[in-house]
C-alpha cells in the first residue's frame, strides 16, 4: 500500500510520522531477535535436566522470530488482512504436510538389509 500516492498532504504527513515511528519498532525488533538468537545458542549448551523443555523453548523462540519478521518487517500488521490469510494458508498446508509426513515415516519400516550408508 503505497501511501505516498496519496495527494492529500495531511495523509502524507500522517504516513511519514508512522514511518518514523516504525524506524524505532524495527530497531527494537532487531535487537530482540538478536538477543533471542543468542539465547538459543546458550540454551543448547546448558546442561539443563529436561531436554524436552529446551526442545519446545527453541521452537517457541523461532516462532517469535518468525512472527516478528512477517508481521513487522513484512508489514503484515499494517497491511490488508487478506495477505496474512493467503500466507498463513500456505503455512498451514505446508506445516500440516510436514507433520503428516513425519508421522507416516517411522524407523520401524526401514529394511536394514538394504545398503544403508555407513559412516566412515
Amino acid at each position: 500500500m503505497s501511501a505516498i500516492a496519496s495527494a492529500d498532504p495531511a495523509a502524507q504527513e500522517t504516513f511519514l510520522r508512522e514511518e518514523r515511528k516504525r524506524y524505532f519498532t524495527f530497531m527494537n525488533l532487531a535487537f530482540l531477535m538478536t538477543a533471542l538468537t543468542g539465547i538459543e545458542l546458550v540454551l543448547i549448551y546448558l546442561p539443563f535436566p529436561s531436554q524436552t523443555i529446551i526442545y519446545f523453548t527453541l521452537i517457541f523462540l523461532s516462532l517469535i522470530k518468525f512472527v516478528g519478521v512477517i508481521f513487522w518487517f513484512m508489514h503484515l500488521l499494517w497491511d490488508k488482512a487478506f495477505l496474512t490469510i493467503v500466507f498463513l494458508f500456505g503455512m498451514v498446508i505446508a506445516s500440516g504436510t510436514i507433520a503428516a509426513l513425519l508421522l507416516l515415516f517411522s524407523e520401524g519400516y526401514v529394511d536394514p538389509a538394504m545398503g544403508i550408508y555407513e559412516a566412515d
Binding site: 504436510t97 509426513l101 507416516l104 515415516f105 526401514v110 538394504m114 545398503g115 544403508i116 550408508y117
Partner: peptide, 21 residues
C-alpha cells in the same frame, strides 16, 4: 545423491508421498 536411491539409504516410498502430495 541418494534421495530415492536405496544403495545410499534413500527411501523410494518418499517419492510416492511427494508425488501424490
Amino acid at each position: 545423491t541418494s534421495f530415492f536411491r536405496v544403495e545410499g539409504g534413500g527411501q523410494p516410498i518418499l517419492w510416492q508421498h511427494l508425488f501424490w502430495i
